[in-house]
Design a protein around this nucleic acid. Sequence first.
DNA 1: TAGGATTTGTGCGTATGTATT
DNA 2: TAATACATACGCACAAATCCT
Lengths: 219, 219
Amino acid sequence: MSDHSDARSRFLRLHDALRTRICMLDYPPGTRLSEETLAAEFGTSRTPLRRVLARLEDEGLVISQHGVGTIVTDVDAEEMARTYDLRRELAGLVGRLSPVPVSDEIIKEAADFLDAGKILLKQPDTRALAELNMDYFHFGTSLTNNLALREMSERLYYRTARIWLTATPRLDLAEETAIFVSELRDSFQALVARDGQAAADVRRAHISLCIARLNRHMA
Amino acid sequence: MSDHSDARSRFLRLHDALRTRICMLDYPPGTRLSEETLAAEFGTSRTPLRRVLARLEDEGLVISQHGVGTIVTDVDAEEMARTYDLRRELAGLVGRLSPVPVSDEIIKEAADFLDAGKILLKQPDTRALAELNMDYFHFGTSLTNNLALREMSERLYYRTARIWLTATPRLDLAEETAIFVSELRDSFQALVARDGQAAADVRRAHISLCIARLNRHMA
DNA sequence: TAGGATTTGTGCGTATGTATT
DNA sequence: TAATACATACGCACAAATCCT
């Protein structure tokens, strides 16, 4: 039962919960996370929670300072741009390093994502779009059997996920939704053709375009 | 003084010490690391040490199990090969993503590495070669200003560093040293020509060759 | 099968650092 | 400047899990 041990599963649960809150801006940059308050909320002592915060600090999402508190980090535009550069390259590598053969199951998943995107077109919603984008990202990384590549991609994703949400008030939500759905459509078509590399290239191209859009609206 | 706070600098010191011991096979795979023993050695309580072990577990170098112990992980040949594949691609990216302009200082460093390698040629030593290789790796990542790329490269490096030392008894030490020195020479010449991309390509090529050598001696 | 030895995980009181009044 | 409030960092005692006899 090592995989379902209480300690490990609880750690994963708390880590995922806090990471999501940070990336969805429920905890905007600058928010102080109180160990005691969070421990009380999750029904544990501070000890297991401190380990979660330590990992979030390793991941660059918070910073703990003795005597001050644990504070959600701010997103540095310059560093985020560099991180996006790397994410773009890794997205392309998903198609080249140990790609998973495209199965009917994978095609069905892509179709489901496309359907979900189309629904969002009629009823644009910032948070729903962000959440669908997060789910779709995980789907994208699942297309390689290279475990290290998956892990690095996800680590970088969570580090940059917030920047889109912080910029989105200045972006056009309907337009962003439309662009995302077109990515889903391109990706779906590539997978229908059983061309994993093409699917990865679609992703790579859209990350490039996303970088350009963010740069435009930053200036 | 947040950078030199006692807690943080101690954490970094202990983490680096244990990571080096693991990667240099002072703690071979399967070794049980006792929290209490290590805490006594470093003059702390278990608490700060547990945080270090937690991070090493995140990095995949050890695994902690309730009631069992903290054990140095074994190197899975298949996964290591996949990780090497990614390392090779990242090495090439160092030349393309935010490369550092090649300065006289950098050229001097490369020259120093080459000198150190030549000394090793006359007096081959497994550990000295491994340590020089580790230092040279850090020099290589310092050639990009892309922080995320540096961090990911280092994370992957420490995850694969042990496999060479594990295989080295079956490899020819003199030959391995010669190959490494030829990489240092190629790299030095590329940097003298102020061609950072060429230096990255040299590194990329040698990682490819290293993968091939390891595969040959595994089978 | 049972029990004891050993190890990591948890909870909590205290020490220490920081900011504010 | 000093004192107070409050946050994280630490150390220890105990709980829980595993292994071996």
